[in-house]
Design a protein around this nucleic acid. Structure first.
Ligand SMILES: [Mn+2]
Ligand SMILES: [Mn+2]
Ligand SMILES: [Zn+2]
Ligand SMILES: [Zn+2]
Lengths: 136, 136
DNA sequence: TGTTACTTTGCAATCATTACAAAGATGAAA
DNA sequence: TTTCATCTTTGTAATGATTGCAAAGTAACA
């Protein structure tokens, strides 16, 4: 994942005006790296920014996705998660504790059968199971 | 994907009472293989079964998932799709026409880095891009 | 200060999904 | 055939996530 020294600058470079709310939301995604939902981002930041609207969280995340600085992670159908790491990597969700872990894999290892002449834009790989800490 | 001659029998074997609605819903998933949403299943069957409730579609699909005869496909965050093919295979969604294609891949090719001592239950791979027919 | 453009907020609307209780169907026992 | 128990479906209301939109707020600048 890329190194970012100044989040305000990073947003500007990506054509996003760095308002207080946007900087805090990106900072949360970037530093925690815990694949949060809208709900958990809002819950976490409401203390620092008591006026923060949930609509703003939605608006901001949508803009970040459009500008390509975060990605959406769909594992469960009832929770959309977000990730400031847009590099190709996989996700493991533990069905016991609910934590979403990152893992690495080599895209070029996967031999795809049946998509000749298809243009591939994004590859998503996720796994469900039991994490090391939840076994016994 | 497995061969099924009699859907009613197949449901019974899997401890599901084969009501008219359940047989029709499974038949739709099994024969069309188009990864439909609840909405499209309901829309398609309402002519044949004019009293069919959307609740019944939800109930039935949830039961099928619990019994393991269908699987959920999460590609977009706003549409849950269902698949009667529960074997390990990948999905390609065309961002132009919206069609979800199946493709094959070999699970054992993927070398995963960072999940030592994790128990893997399910592996999901999906790709987004432009399908052959939409490239002109 | 006044103007403009952009951002955030709050609330209402929409859409997907679930909960629940009433009504309907099935099938075996009497 | 009637009765009874059980399972299934239906309709509606409730919930929860997400979006639309207009009003209020902010920042830069002439
Ligand atoms: Mn990640
Ligand atoms: Mn499939
Ligand atoms: Zn765990
Ligand atoms: Zn297409």
């Amino acid at each position: 994942m890329i190194e970012i020294k100044n989040i305000g600058e990073y947003l500007k470079v990506n054509k996003i005006m760095p308002s207080v709310q946007r900087v805090k939301i990106f900072e949360y995604l970037y530093t925690k790296r815990n694949h949060p939902t809208v709900e958990s981002i809002h819950k976490e930041l409401i203390d620092e920014i008591p006026t923060l609207s949930k609509t703003t969280v939605y608006n901001t995340l949508k803009q970040f996705v459009e500008k390509g600085i975060i990605q959406i992670i769909n594992i469960e159908d009832n929770e959309t998660r977000y990730d400031a790491d847009t590099s190709t990597h996989g996700h493991f969700k533990c069905i016991k504790c609910g934590i979403v872990y990152d893992f690495l894999f080599d895209n070029s290892d996967i031999k795809i059968n049946g998509l000749d002449n298809f243009d591939i834009h994004q590859t998503h790989l996720y796994i469900k199971g039991i994490c090391k800490n939840c076994k016994n």
